[in-house]
Design a protein around this nucleic acid. Sequence first.
DNA 1: CGTGCTCACCTTTTT
DNA 2: GGTGAGCACG
Length: 784
Amino acid sequence: MPLPDSPDHAATPAPRISDLARARPPGPDYLEGLNPEQRQAVEAIDGPVLVLAGAGTGKTRVLTTRLAHILATGKAKPWELLAVTFTNKAAREMRERITAIIGPTAEGLRWLGTFHSIAAQILRRHADLVGLKSNYTILDDDDQERLIKQLLAAENIDVKRWTPKHLAGLIDHWKNRGWTPDRLPPAEASQFANGRGQALYRLYQERLRILNACDFGDLLLHNLTIFTSQPDVLAEFHNRFRYILVDEYQDTNVAQYLWLRLLAQSRQNICCVGDDDQSIYGWRGAEVDNILRFERDFPGSTVIRLERNYRSTSHILAAASGLIATNKDRLGKTLWTEADGGEKVVVRGVWDGEAESRLIAEEIERAKRGSTDRPARRYRDVAILVRASFQMRAFEERFVMLQIPYTVIGGPRFFERAEIRDAHAYLRLIQSPDDDLAFERIVNVPKRGIGETTVQKLLQIARAQQVPASIAARQLALTDELAARTRTALATFLRDLDRWRAEAERIAHPRLMEMVLEESGYTDALKLDRTPTAQTRLENLKELVQSMGSFEDLGSYLEHVSLVMDLDRGPAADAVQIMTLHSAKGLEFPLVFLPGWEEGVFPSQRSVDEKGEKGLEEERRLAYVGITRAREEARISFVANRQVYGRWTSQLPSRFVDELPLANVEAASETGYYGGGPGMQQQHGSRWDESSSFGDGYSSPGWRRAQERNYRGSHPGRQPVLEGEGRLVAVSAPSHSSDYARGDRVFHQKFGYGEVTGVEGNKLTVTFEKAGEKRVIDSFVERG
DNA sequence: CGTGCTCACCTTTTT
DNA sequence: GGTGAGCACG
């Protein structure tokens, strides 16, 4: 299929009024206000360029201005630019910001998107070259795992010992490295189920091809196969892409690197922007090496360092720089700022996790109030960045109790919910009758009396005859092999499918979705469903139908959801943001709390165990990312005792605490417990004890006492903070719904006794009887 | 075929 | 401690 010579409007969102209103002719003024390095990065158009953009140095501005500049100089048309990002959010932001500079011309940037969305487009055009049809489906990880599970079952592999998840992880890893089954290195090929890894990988790919489907890794991998086996196709793209721009280059995996190198190979006009110090995705295949090697990969390249930071005060910047300097594997940058010193980074040791959340909550309340020498902050100016999500709970509990508004960023996503996946399975099956995974998913959802036995029988026929499951179902419905009831059920289902397929030609896809949900009995089943989540699910489905409206047709909608696994949410409320360090990348906040800096928690024990020094360096980069999120204040804390999986454990301060430059750090001592613990000095050669700037230092037995007392089971941290009896359990109730029911009497430390009036998923609604007033808040209950 | 119980798990997450 | 998965049971 030839490439169109004009922008493909179907693939780009329609311009919004607000963007058009902002549109103005491109003038040289877009270069104004850039510092010399930024300007160089914008103007060095030809040849390979690596822009090392430190945290807060105006990276996005450089990227967008550079694109605008290329267009303004007439060196390329919008559709001749390839601009890749990792996330949809980044792509969206880039498009918006370019539109702000150049106006509606930005619509023509049809090759601006994520690696995966661009690879998917390329694959649609050339699917036949890898044995797929251009309407192939993209499987989500749920489908992928079910497919692998079937495969393992068919191969008589013990799925207890060799889990589908494990193999899915391996295959993903292999694809990230750009290895097809044939190219698998021997050491890798012999992995899994006594050396059957390679064979299973091959079988899996075979199954995908039969299903006319591919997984996320395939999008890139198939591109590589096409490019390397069909020079003419590659040449076509060489001709097309005059300039290539890559964001977050430090996060590229091998497959993405090879993909870029192939595309850049003829013109060499590739500009990669990234920061080796912010590479935090090694565990999902990112290779810091790619950025470290750039100059060797692209001879004659220009390297530009953006080192002027516009975000943080100098103490914060210096603390972060001092910490990251411990890493060996880096290209090296010296960030600087013209901002004044500001406040030092505060480091504190506290008693336990509860005390830590109490302290942080108090400080947030203080910050919110403001004082004579400090402006009052809004809640949304504050972020709590944790290493792992299990650390979030303590803060949520505290905030609910104190009624501090908060949002947790991350967590389960809209399109990953079961009901949404079910709905999509219906749509997929309507669109492509041979989507067996979709068929299996919903053939008995809602329950229509087609049980596991029938499905297995059906799949057997399908496999024996090499036909899709729906064809096999049609045959089976004609024979008398099934009980009359089952046969009728199956026939009805097939007839419904046919009808929907016919309707799909005529009616709008949101209407189709409604029709399917109604006629299949899905909504009815949910309405009758008395489990607490049913209501939410119905609402989710309504939201789904609504969100479909903004797409042209069913096909583009399905393509969108498989590549963009999230929904655009409304504007953020004024709330404290709780998130992991990983999801904080790219964000900034005036006040940042960094709790849980303890050995084993951060750096994560597992990282260090599995990846050794490399893992440790990545953890340190994570710490660097954390500190550099702060504009004005950064507060690090660690505890003496922490509950991990219900067990009390003694903690030592993170080695990262010791690596912070003393001059930029202030050790606060509100709680009386600070500094390292026994053995600390021997372990990491701490400097804190010498400086004695850190409370009473290591010579103090305070830390040891704190830990020992904990084992005796009596320490102040466990006492309730507010008056009242009972125990605070959790923000979310246990998932075992039998543990709670409507009518249960529960106790809240602030609001007193209440009654469970709603159970929704793992969240409880409690109505409190205090003061005659009914107050509904989420959870906080006492069990039993 | 639907439910209740025991058990093993427990970092980060995008597409 | 909390959770989902898988299995045994009715």
